[in-house]
Design a protein around this nucleic acid. Structure first.
Lengths: 188, 188
DNA sequence: GAATATATAGACCGGTTGATCTACCTGTCA
DNA sequence: TGACAGGTAGATCAACCGGTCTATATATTC
């Protein structure tokens, strides 16, 4: 039987680290994470080998969840590829408007982790590749003339909306959906 | 007479901090900056009051230079507002392609400086306002139907290009100029 | 009941952080 | 000459960093 006591230390560590690395940045101290998770110091090193392992595991968890979120957003918009793509940008504006929004976790991670060999970079790179592929797939279904190029452009737009949202909430996501429409329709 | 010996400590501190906060991030240590500037520890606190004051002064310096750079880029493109705007995005692609490019200094600063009251945030906010105004001015000259909105969209595009450039050089700036054209022409 | 694996609590390590301080050196100007 | 502002060099500080360690408690399993 699995433990019955409200999630083990490993799970609590992942959740605490996910929250704190987002709200306080990747440079948050190990002590703060341990305190929040109510976990002994040693358990962190048993389960994840160190801080690097923990934050990498966090990113693996959130990228999976975020990719799932993208898919669900599109599925909820029906079957029309154009509507599915635009739904992504509507969802983006909603995410940025949330009071807890503090920017793109993956961009922050890549900027904060100066060491180019940090395992976290591989996770974020793979995540971006998958989301771009998701966009390209819909563009291809739409018979877009340059699906690959347009997918890259849409993703730059996503990056821009998230970056702008982090630095100036209000006017940030002003009409990114509109721009997405322009990119999509330019190739039809 | 001003000192003759190749720039005083204040200047050297600004230059060293400008380089190191960019290449190693805002979290670079004071020691590294002092060593690079060849300046005594005390001088930093005499001139800038502390690290916060120094990095804020650095941002004030670079925002001025960057705004000047935007203006020069546009002026070099002649008088046609549309060409002047597109020149900005051509310049952007060039900047990102440079091997020393490591992302937008101001986005990094805002993300790394968690404290919302840090004086650096005011500097970056003002910078973004000025650049957006620059874009809006050209759009107005073009008689764009929604100059304010389009300026905001163009700036999101700039943010996106710089963010994308920081995380995946190669395909990053793929056709941001193309998207800029779409935004500009959509309102004519 | 004993053994084992898995927690916890917390002392401790060396290293680094930003900041303060004293002591000394050097050029300029009255 | 002497005073002084402005620079250098470096010791020192408390706080914090990630990581290792010992000792103890608590379960599960044989």
């Amino acid at each position: 039987m699995a433990t019955r006591t409200a999630a083990g230390p490993r799970q609590r560590l992942l959740e605490a680290a996910e929250e704190l690395t987002y709200s306080r940045g990747m440079n948050v101290g190990v002590d703060a994470i341990l305190k929040r998770a109510n976990v002994a110091r040693r358990s962190l090193y048993e389960h994840f080998g160190g801080k690097d392992g923990l934050v990498t595991a966090v990113l693996e968890r959130t990228t999976e969840a975020d990719e799932r979120h993208y898919r669900e957003t599109m599925d909820a918009a029906g079957d029309d590829p154009r509507k599915r793509l635009l739904a992504v940008f509507d969802g983006l504006e909603a995410v940025i408007a949330e009071p807890t929004f503090r920017g793109c976790r993956y961009l922050s991670a890549d900027l904060a982790l100066a060491d180019p060999d940090h395992p976290a970079h591989a996770v974020t790179r793979e995540y971006r590749r998958r989301i771009t592929a998701l966009l390209e797939h819909e563009l291809t279904r739409l018979r877009h003339r340059a699906a690959g190029r347009a997918a890259a452009q849409l993703f730059v737009l996503i990056d821009g909306a998230l970056a702008a949202g982090a630095t100036r909430r209000a006017e940030a996501a002003t009409g990114v959906g509109e721009v997405a429409e322009l990119i999509i329709d330019a190739g039809l």
